[in-house]
Design a protein around this nucleic acid. Structure first.
Lengths: 368, 368
DNA sequence: GCTTAGCACTCTCGCGAGGAGAGTGCTAAC
DNA sequence: GTTAGCACTCTCCTCGCGAGAGTGCTAAGC
């Protein structure tokens, strides 16, 4: 009934049954893969290093711990698992997780409860900003990790209207409306006071001139026109165009990321050192690095995963990031996802991210 | 040269030299007060319980540890200090801090470096929002704790202009400009599509009618007029007034608090349990409780201090809050302050909060 | 009557020993 | 190729012990 919500990761999901997968350190056989999968699933469940006895039971292959030990030694040689110390069980490495995520994962459909939560939360309500915020909160709520939603530069945004309000003195408040009701505003200092009537005239002039046009085109035309025809132009209109230019600068930086449920990350033992958390939270308030990272995902198709150091940011070494784009009419609107410990339940998280993106897109599409 | 920046706490600052101060448990003599002061100052400096030997040296009164022990026992009887365990030094209680803050504090002028940082950060730049954000960041930066700035409901704000922008379908974007360039906007659904010309007419009508009036008056008049004259009125104007009412609802909730440097709190050992920090950070993102707390300070004169449980919020039991109002022309604009561990350097923090408020007010005043 | 030295006592903290438990690698037998 | 057995290793918990800091109380001193 809601089959369209389940993600299609067929080409990367099926644990292939007889093929051998080449790894850095050589080929790896089917049985070893099976054990790796079982080991990672176990480790994700209880967070402990997995020993041979445990794994032997878990894997359901009726092999003795000793045999399992041999296999584990092989996996360790291939760099897929490692032991924290000489006589403890094994823990997956980043490469191990990578292989798991790329080739071993069995993505199950989401629990109906979760689908319902997302579905009812992301109902169309006419306010895109609120919708996006909700998406971020839902992501964090359902996964118990931190939710991220990036609202990208609206490169394709359309100029709708510009308005000038005279404040005290020579200050003018410029208000730019773009797209489906995005409002950008900025206080501008002029060298000469303008009367409300003049401002009205200026706004009429600009609105008439540019309404419906692509925001980038408008920006370019403003620059060109100002250069070329400066002296021939009505003083007032020249000033109006300058003001328009100024408010467009603020519109440019609008691209932003909403983060919710950061504090969920405090509950994971593997992240629970103040040092790590502080740098993580600082990055969250700073936002720049998170933004860069999400920006890199915007080109990718489907669910994108960064495990541990793969992100390239040291402060995310113990974290993984699961993202996907959300799009309307095949045009990417933004990126969303979650950030959590490397040891996260990928099987559960991936569909959540995917479904949230689809539902958010659907909700956004509904506004005509 | 900047004497006006130093706070006037004369009536509460001077450690009185011979008077006895009544406490809950009886009178307390001058010498005991002196020791209390020394003890708290010491504890604030190094965070350790203070023993009799240390205190004897610190106090500079050339008394033996044994004598000091007697005094400390008295202080403990009065509930001003307590010992974490039988044979450890003493630590101030909330009552102890209270007495210290009310009667013993010697507020020294701020270090010139800090004054300079604040002064250059809070230069008038025409953007009140940015100014307020900077204030919060500066507070946290200079004190190494979390900075708070509350932007209160602008009860006294003035209606300046209203603008309607037609979006696709029957959706209309209403933009309300109040005060010195505060912009509130909201997407509104109408039952009938309006032409841009109609919307323009509506906005002209309302702006002309209400411009310069107190926002509360406008709100009241809207309600009254709609009730009374609904049927006699032009359909369009009735709808315009309804839309105006809707956007004013959003303007109502604008009252907000900016928090900066939360992560600084992770560096204090006494707060460094995940549990505490999580609830603290959750409160920071939730903001409601912080807002309530700051709201309570708005009536008070001068620097206001909540120590530990005095705030009434369990999650702030190990924290103190130092706040003050900032005002222009004797009218309170908002509240700002810092939040940090109970064991904070009040002597240093109080002037920082006070000076920041004065500088922020000065910067805000400059916009005419 | 305040101050002080002395003393027994208490509590924390750090260290090392010791034992339980989990898990390993290796070897040899199946 | 698989398995049982075995010696080994490493963590973790607990316990005991001693050092150190600080206390309260008592009795003597000014």
């Amino acid at each position: 009934m809601c089959g369209h919500l389940f993600i299609d990761v067929s080409e990367q999901t099926r644990a292939n049954d007889s093929r051998r997968i080449p790894t850095k350190a050589g080929e790896i056989n089917e049985r070893a893969l099976h054990f790796l999968k079982a080991l990672i699933e176990r480790h994700i469940r209880d967070g402990q290093p997995v020993g041979s006895r445990t794994l032997a039971k878990d894997a359901g292959l009726d092999l003795s711990p000793a045999t399992v030990r041999n296999v584990m030694a092989d996996l360790e040689d291939m760099g897929l698992v490692s032991s924290p110390h000489t006589s403890s069980g094994r823990v997956p490495t980043v490469s191990g997780y990578r292989l798991f995520v790329d080739s071993l994962l069995t993505v199950s459909p989401m629990e109906q409860d979760d689908v319902n939560v997302l579905r009812s939360g992301l109902e169309f309500n006419g306010d895109p900003k609120a919708l996006i915020e909700t998406a971020s909160r839902l992501l964090s709520g359902v996964t118990h990790m931190a939710g991220l939603v990036m609202v990208p530069r609206h490169e394709r945004d359309v100029f709708r209207q510009i308005e000038f309000v005279s404040l005290s003195g020579t200050r003018v408040l410029a208000i730019l409306v773009t797209g489906e009701g995005e409002v950008h505003n900025r206080v501008i200092y002029t060298d000469k006071a303008c009367s409300p009537a003049q401002l009205q005239q200026a706004s009429n002039f600009l609105t008439e001139m540019f309404t419906g046009q692509d925001i980038n085109t408008v920006r370019r035309r403003l620059v060109d026109d100002l250069k070329r025809t400066h002296r021939h132009m009505d003083q007032l209109m020249a000033r109006a165009m300058e003001m328009a230019q100024r408010v467009m600068e603020t519109a440019e930086h609008r691209d932003d990321v909403l983060i919710a449920g950061q504090t969920n990350l405090m509950e994971f033992e593997e992240l629970a050192t103040m040092e790590r958390l502080k740098s993580l939270f600082d990055a969250f308030t700073e936002k720049r690095q998170i933004l860069d990272l999400l920006d890199r995902c915007i080109e990718a198709d489907g669910v994108q995963i960064f495990i541990g150091y793969e992100s390239g940011y040291e402060l995310l070494d113990d974290c993984s990031l699961v993202t996907t784009t959300y799009r309307v009419e095949n045009e990417v609107l933004g990126v969303l996802g979650v950030i959590g410990p490397t040891r996260m339940d990928y099987q559960r998280v991936i569909p959540v991210v995917d479904v949230t993106a689809k539902l958010l897109a659907a909700a956004l599409r509904q506004q005509p």
